[in-house]
């Protein structure tokens, strides 16, 4: 419990900053919506002029682009990108922070098991992400109501927004496994930015080729917004893949961390 509270306190500031940033991104996008809908036809013609591959790479779907939900999806991909960086940062710093600040000796000579240490740290990261998502969801929904000109399904809006959370969970798990395996990480941000952008671009290229199987390569493509809008649900196969990735990464992290030598630096 004490570790959990200590960690939460340590993440407090960054969680607030990330939450506000996510809201700022979505607010920026939403503020474009009114002017967008005014000139729908011209925009549609303009976008139709773009190659299909480019449109797909940026997640622009002409069928629903001009509805509030479709428009939101476009902004959402950037929110997801930011969210992924936040989660990856949290995950990567969980263990590496202790090594870098040389506090591992402090914590691990206390009467606690390593499993308890990792569990508490993981919980703290998870709670930070959940808080971010709750605040983000509330703010995004409010914004959507503000700018929407016609009624939209809130349930779908929430389903769409939750994809940020799911992608964050995957990157949190990836971050943890990296921080446990790599002996010493000098800069968390470098590692997390590199990983997140690698997957982001991998996702972009996989969607241009239109190959379904390639979608499994990037967590950013696990949630097809057009599918969610149409079916009001997620694709089971990708949900399962995501869950498997998370379970394996976290399970392996616990296993490795319990066996690992903590070297002095």
């Amino acid at each position: 419990m004490n570790i959990l509270l200590h960690e939460l306190r340590a993440y407090r500031k960054s969680t607030m900053i990330w939450t506000l940033s996510l809201i700022a991104v979505v607010a920026l996008f939403m503020s474009f919506f009114p002017s967008f809908t005014k000139d729908t036809e011209e925009f549609r013609k303009l976008l139709e002029g773009y190659p299909v591959a480019l449109r797909e790479a940026f997640g622009i779907n002409l069928d629903n682009f001009f509805s509030i939900l479709g428009f939101y999806c476009y902004g959402l991909s950037f929110v997801t990108l930011c969210g992924a960086i936040q989660a990856m940062n949290l995950g990567t710093s969980i263990v590496s922070k202790e090594v870098r600040e040389k506090t591992a000796d402090f914590l691990l000579t206390k009467p606690v098991t390593r499993t308890a240490v990792l569990t508490n740290k993981l919980l703290a990261a998870l709670i930070s992400i959940i808080i971010t998502n709750i605040i983000y969801l509330a703010a995004a929904t409010l914004l959507a109501y503000q700018v929407a000109t016609v009624d939209f399904k809130v349930s779908i809006f929430i389903l769409l927004s939750l994809t940020v959370f799911f992608v964050q969970l995957i990157f949190l798990a990836l971050g943890i496994i990296i921080s446990v395996v790599v002996q010493r990480i000098k800069s968390v941000l470098t590692v997390s930015l590199a990983t997140v952008f690698a997957f982001y671009f991998l996702g972009m290229f996989s969607s241009t080729s239109g190959d379904e199987v390639k979608r499994y390569l990037s967590p950013f493509k696990y949630f097809d917004t057009a599918y969610i809008i149409e079916k009001s649900g997620y694709e089971a196969s990708f949900l399962i893949t995501g869950a498997v990735v998370i379970i394996i990464a976290i399970g392996a992290s616990f296993y490795i961390y319990a066996k690992k030598d903590i070297h002095s630096v």
Binding site: D105, L108, D261, H263, S264
Partner: peptide
Amino acid sequence: RTLLSLIY
């Protein structure tokens, strides 16, 4: 460090 099981 071995006594403290920081390393095994």
